[in-house]
Computed example of a mutant assay.
Amino acid sequence: MGPIGVYVCSSTSACLSLLVLIIFVLNITVTTMAEELVPSIGAIASLLLTNKTSQMQVGYFLVIPNMVLSLGAILLIYLYEHTAYTHRREQERPTEDAPKEIMMY
């Protein structure tokens, strides 16, 4: 897949994870969809709800390690590519560090 593919997949995963976190929190706090959904079910339409609360459980918080690991993969690939590029550049010019007498012959 190469480093570009890992960059694309990991950055897409991290961005979508952040988007999911934001949209879910906005959906829970701003809208009243969760409170309106339960009484709208046909069999329990006459249900009267009190103490309406919505909570974020474990599945929501498992998105955070996914985002962190995606960003970690991007950082790891970047550091590997940077090290490989630096090593390649050092191998291309081995005579720069040589003494001048050796370079003259």
Rank of each mutant, 00 (worst) to 15 (best):
Ala34Lys: 12
Phe61Val: 04
Ala34Trp: 06
Leu49Glu: 03
Ile28Tyr: 10
Ile4Gly: 12
Pro65Leu: 15
Leu16Gly: 15
Leu47Tyr: 13
Glu92Phe: 13
Ser46Ala: 12
Ala73Pro: 00
Ile41Phe: 01
Ser46Cys: 12
Glu92Thr: 02
Met103Thr: 06
Tyr78Met: 08
Leu37Ser: 13
Ile4Ser: 10
Leu79Arg: 04
Pro3Val: 06
Gln91Lys: 04
Leu26Ile: 07
Leu48Lys: 06
Leu69Lys: 09
Ile44His: 07
Ile4Cys: 05
Gln91Tyr: 00
Leu75Met: 02
Ile22Val: 04
Ala98His: 06
Ile44Val: 13
Glu96Arg: 02
Asn27Gly: 11
Ala14Tyr: 08
Arg89Ile: 03
Asn51Asp: 06
Gln55Ile: 14
Arg93Leu: 05
Leu18Gly: 00
Arg88Ala: 12
Met104Tyr: 10
Gln57His: 03
Leu76Glu: 00
Ser13Cys: 07
Met33His: 13
Ile77Phe: 02
Glu96Asn: 10
Asn66Ser: 08
Leu49Tyr: 15
Gly5Ala: 01
Thr31Pro: 01
Glu96Cys: 14
Gly5Ile: 00
Tyr85Glu: 13
Ala73Gln: 12
Val8Lys: 14
Tyr60Asn: 00
Ser17Lys: 06
Ser70His: 08
Lys100Tyr: 04
Asn51Gln: 10
Leu16Thr: 13
Thr53Gly: 02
Leu16Lys: 01
Thr32Gly: 14
Asn27Gln: 05
Ile22Gln: 02
Ile64Pro: 03
Ala98Asp: 05
Leu18His: 07
Ile102Phe: 15
Val63Met: 14
Asn27Pro: 05
Ile44Met: 04
Leu49Phe: 01
Lys52Pro: 11
Asn27Lys: 11
Val6Cys: 01
His87Tyr: 13
Glu35Gly: 07
Pro99Asp: 09
Ile4Asp: 05
Thr86His: 09
Tyr60Pro: 00
Met104Pro: 11
Tyr7Gly: 09
Ser54Tyr: 01
Leu75Asn: 07
Pro65Ala: 11
Lys52Asn: 08
Cys9Ala: 04
Val6Tyr: 07
Glu96Asp: 02
Phe61Thr: 05
Ile74Glu: 05
Thr95Gly: 07
Ala98Leu: 03
Glu35Leu: 07
Val58Tyr: 06
Leu49Asp: 07
Gly2Asp: 08
Thr12Leu: 13
Tyr85His: 12
Val6Asn: 04
Tyr80Leu: 03
Ser54Val: 12
Leu18Ala: 14
Asn66Met: 10
Leu69Asn: 07
Asn27Cys: 12
Leu49Gly: 10
Ala34Phe: 00
Cys9Trp: 13
Thr31Ala: 14
Met33Lys: 09
Ile44Lys: 13
Glu36Ser: 09
Leu37Val: 10
Gly2Trp: 02
Thr95Cys: 07
Ile74His: 15
His87Pro: 03
Arg89Met: 15
Arg88His: 12
Asn66Pro: 05
Leu79Gln: 00
Ser40Gly: 03
Glu36Leu: 10
Leu26Gly: 08
Asn51Pro: 00
Ile23Asp: 15
Ala14Asn: 00
Tyr105Val: 11
Arg88Trp: 09
Glu36Lys: 04
Gly5Pro: 01
Thr95Val: 15
Arg93Glu: 07
Val20Ser: 15
Leu16Met: 09
Leu79Ile: 07
Thr95Pro: 05
Gly42Thr: 02
Arg93Ala: 14
Gly72Tyr: 01
Cys9Leu: 07
Gly42Asp: 13
Leu49Ile: 15
Ser70Asn: 05
Leu79Lys: 03
Val25Ala: 08
Met103His: 09
Thr53Trp: 10
Thr53Asp: 05
